[in-house]
Every structure is written in C-alpha cells, then in structure tokens.
Design a protein around this nucleic acid. Structure first.
Lengths: 116, 116
DNA sequence: TTTGATGCGTTCTATTATAGAACTTATAAG
DNA sequence: CTTATAAGTTCTATAATAGAACGCATCAAA
C-alpha cells in the first residue's frame, strides 16, 4: 500500500489518517479548536512553511473538515465544520496521553508557543 | 518551529505527535492492537517499505510505546507497553470518526487488507 | 498618490523523507 | 545441499518539507 491510497482502505482508522495523518494537520486543527482562523495566525503559531500551510488548509477544506469563509476581498477565515468539530475527542486524548507519557525535552534556546 | 522540535513543545498534543505523528506510525500501532507483533507481518499488512518500518519500530521502542522481545536468535516480537496501550482511545476515536466522516473511495484495482 | 503595513498566498532552491527493489545474515526445514 | 523464512540493511529514484524571497490586493497614513 502507498500512503496516498489510504483513502480507499477498508479500515476507518486508515481513512481518517488519509485526511488528518499528514504532518502538521492535527496541529492546525488544534489551533482551530483554540480559536485561530487565519492564515498568518496559523503560520506564526506553528512555524511551518507557508507553502505547506496552504497545502494543508486546502486539503482540509476539500475534505470538509474546515470551511473557508471570506471576511474581506482575498481574505478568509478557516473554521471547523461539524465534521471537523467531531475530531475533538482525538485531540483531547492526544493531549491527555502526551501530558502523561511524553515529558517535555529541554529546548536548544529561545522559548515559543503559548497554546495549552 | 520545525517538526523535529515538537518534543520540546509546551503543548502535550504537539509532544504526542512527536512520537506518533509520523507517517505510518499510528497504523503500525493499530496493527499492534489487533495482535501483530512481527516485522514481516507489519510489512505485509501495511505495505510500507522495510526501511521505514525498521525506522518507525525503532523510534516507538525508543519512546517506550513498544517493547522488543526476542523469541529466537535475531527475531523479535514487538508488543505494546502500558504506555502504548494507553493510546487505545486515540485509535478508537479515529476509527469512529473515519467510519462516520470519511467514505471509502473506489480503488484502482486489486483489493487488499483484512483488518478491523 | 506615493509609501508602508497587512493578509494570503506562490515560486524558487536545498535538504529530508519515502518508495521500491535487491542484498545480508542467521535459523530451520526438506 | 538447497530452499524458505525472519529481520533487517543498502541502493537508487522520486516525493515531501524547509527556508527564504516574491507577488498582488487592500487599507491606512503621509
């Protein structure tokens, strides 16, 4: 199997991962749950490249997880759809598991992030 | 932020993803929950390259999610640790979400897989 | 009405990651 | 001795990601 064929897999877990299993995708959704809605806000918060961010947002919109709502010409809010909101338990458990099982390693230098 | 710095992130979700957020990793764990324990079994079931499988298994063992138990000289069973078993709710919700929200697309040709 | 800042991308090059197949080493079976 | 199985490793080719710069449109100030 190729990663790109996951969407036709018999297993629902594999199909879920075909939508949210790419690098950064779940972190973008975490930001959505916290209230971020805009391109630059995601980019600054996550630090991924603009190229990838554009790609991931497009895929999420395409999959019906986010919807793109214009608030001015050429500017958009990305908001969770009902489908997207249904992912809350996944993030919630990842939060709990990480808190319990993945101690924070020391950083090289400058601190970042604020989320929760 | 780089993907490789996620392990020092303040957010537990980001730290979780530093362990299980790589391509294939959650599918390998799914196989573990279903009872697979061996290298070739994972490889045949998932179809990822042996190279990547070796890499992912090593990372999971290193992170304490799987443990490597020899059953013969040079042969091993990979089994979930307590920490690994604690990921069950994540997979469970991904299962539910995929079943509800990600319809299976048609395949190009030959069917595969059996899981679930 | 030119200048500058903001928002949302796209384009470019360089580096990593992944795919696919062949090759190792060791054990065990025929 | 030959073949089969298990668990990798090595190799080359292709795809994905990082990092920075560029583009274009709006708005606000000068």
């Amino acid at each position: 199997m190729k990663w790109s064929d996951l969407d036709s897999d018999k297993c629902p877990i594999a199909r879920s991962l075909s939508v949210v299993g790419d690098r950064w995708t779940l972190l973008i959704l975490r930001d959505c749950f916290v209230g971020n809605t805009r391109f630059d806000a995601f980019q600054k918060s996550l630090g991924l490249t603009r190229h990838l961010l554009a790609d991931r947002l497009a895929k999420l919109v395409n999959a019906g997880v986010l919807k793109k709502e214009p608030y001015a010409k050429g500017r958009y809010d990305y908001r969770l759809t009902t489908q997207g909101k249904a992912l809350a338990p996944v993030l919630s458990h990842l939060f709990d598991w990480g808190k319990e099982n993945v101690p924070r390693t020391e950083m090289a230098s400058g601190e970042r992030e604020a989320h929760t």
